[in-house]
């Protein structure tokens, strides 16, 4: 695993410049966890930011990791592209401990990235971000005709679907026949 701790600065919570003078109780130090995506780049994220993800929150809630243990055991999400995970981490940091706004205009507009983000966010169970993403996906086809939607989202026509299904069946049949013949050959 790469030990590059990219995103550490953006992931770290904003440190107060001066300690409050009249602080009655000592502040509990914030705990951090580490995650990496397909690109193995490790992101340091505070437990507070990770609370947005029900999946990760559930995983870490009873761990009680020390800083060293957390660093040594980053959570590998190798099914998520590095840049997508970076977006997710950034969003969690930006919205740490804050009420989420009704709209989020900083989401990617490119189809591929947005779909990847939707899938990652759904996987990580980040409810609010998923809502924004789904809204963004819906916006992609606003005012579009069926033909335009088919083109934008590469939706095959029913005829194309049927042809593909027929082809798949044919292939499966051939494979099954091949396996039977091979099994018969083995038996001989």
């Amino acid at each position: 695993m790469s030990s590059t701790e990219q995103g550490t600065s953006s992931a770290a919570p904003a440190e107060p410049t001066t300690a409050p003078e009249s602080a009655a109780a000592p502040e509990v130090p914030e705990s951090f966890y580490y995650v990496h995506g397909k690109d193995k780049v490790v992101h340091k994220v505070s437990a507070g930011a990770l609370q947005h993800s029900a999946l990760i929150h559930g995983m870490i809630s009873n761990l009680g990791y020390t800083e060293e243990q957390a660093k040594a055991n980053p959570f590998p999400f190798e099914n998520i592209d590095g840049d997508i995970l970076q977006m997710v981490v950034d969003w969690c940091n930006q919205h740490k401990g804050k009420p989420t706004p009704p709209e989020d205009t900083n989401l990617p507009k490119q189809k591929e990235k947005l779909f990847d983000l939707v899938l990652a966010v759904n996987y990580l169970e980040i409810k609010e971000l998923l809502t924004y993403c789904c809204k963004q996906v819906a916006m992609m086809v606003k005012g579009k005709s069926p033909e335009e939607i088919r083109e934008i989202w590469m939706i095959p026509t029913d005829a194309e679907d049927e042809a593909a299904e027929k082809e798949a069946k044919k292939r499966a049949g051939k494979e099954a026949a091949g396996e039977t013949a091979a099994a018969a050959g083995d038996a001989k």
Partner: peptide, 12 residues
């Protein structure tokens, strides 16, 4: 999680 399939980016 790491062993799960890699995402595709098509609506379908």
């Amino acid at each position: 999680l790491a062993n799960d399939s890699i995402y595709d980016t098509n609506w379908c």
